[in-house]
Design a protein around this nucleic acid. Structure first.
Lengths: 156, 156
DNA sequence: TTAGGTGCAAATTCTTTGCACCCTG
DNA sequence: CAGGGTGCAAAGAATTTGCACCTAA
């Protein structure tokens, strides 16, 4: 199955509550609903989708609260985003087989090549989801520029 | 270096011109500039970034022409987009190590797991770009739902 | 009690569209 | 010369923000 088990959802909820308490963030009903909805979703919903789902249980919730909550959760590393964070669509004229290095701090994205990575064997858990046409490796990390800045700001 | 060589850029330009001619798409100066800018970029620019760069050479170009051109190029498979097409930011509460299956037709994204894929060896061409923290495999293909629809619509 | 959080509405930002004029084929 | 393409301005979406009221701790 795709969706997280009830056990897993409860585990995520407890972690969420713990992180909030530690960070001094209030546990409001809205936040709990938003997090729970995401914690039990298996389909990576957008803000609008989360809003629609939360609204079924809590009709008075507002879309802007959902946005604020999602970014708050993201800032506290309770959730992540697909693609590169708050970025808009980016375009690529490189149609040859390649992979991506993405800086999680500044969004910088660069191509790299590797014949080995071009030909990965996928587990059946991936193949049952559909017919795979191609695979792409996304290496996430900190680019040189951002490393440099961090090092500098840490200087005494 | 990151950016495509001049040779590569010229190769892409020729292919672009050929595809346009074959598809009956007019080769306007705006389109050529937009495509060239993207073909020689190594950084996966957004529409706005392409616009700014093209404007330096062609001050009268408009942002909406850039948008129209980018999607046109995308429709003709002369370029691709990062992330999943025209989608908005999507969120993920799954913080354990996992990978993604993405349907290129409908955008459906699902997680799958593989210990083998968790531990890929990256080439030095990737490692020179920055400090890699984690890697993620993105398997692109057609999900079952979309396959089914295609099969049905092909029925006689 | 009170600072942080929420809902509402308005503001921004990003992207698309209608239309008259222009230029490629 | 004709039909597709462009720029402009306005419309539409998506997302964020200001503010007065509310509520978790």
């Amino acid at each position: 199955m795709h969706d997280p088990s009830k056990r897993e959802v409860e585990h995520r909820m407890r972690r969420f509550e713990q992180v909030c308490r530690d960070a001094g963030i209030r546990l409001t009903p809205q936040r709990m609903q938003v997090f729970r909805e995401l914690a039990q979703a298996g389909d990576h919903p957008s803000a609008e989708m989360v809003y629609q789902r939360v609204r079924e249980r809590m009709p008075t919730v507002s879309l802007d609260t959902v946005y604020r909550t999602l970014w708050l959760l993201n800032d506290h590393e309770l959730i992540t985003t697909l693609g590169t964070s708050r970025e808009r669509t980016r375009f690529d004229a490189n149609l040859s087989r390649h992979h991506h290095f993405v800086c999680v701090r500044c969004g910088m994205t660069r191509d790299f090549y590797s014949e080995e990575l071009d030909d990965l064997k996928l587990p059946s858990s991936a193949r049952v989801l559909g017919q795979v046409v191609t695979t792409l490796v996304e290496a996430r990390g900190i680019c040189r520029e951002c490393s440099r800045k961090t090092a500098r700001s840490t200087d005494s």
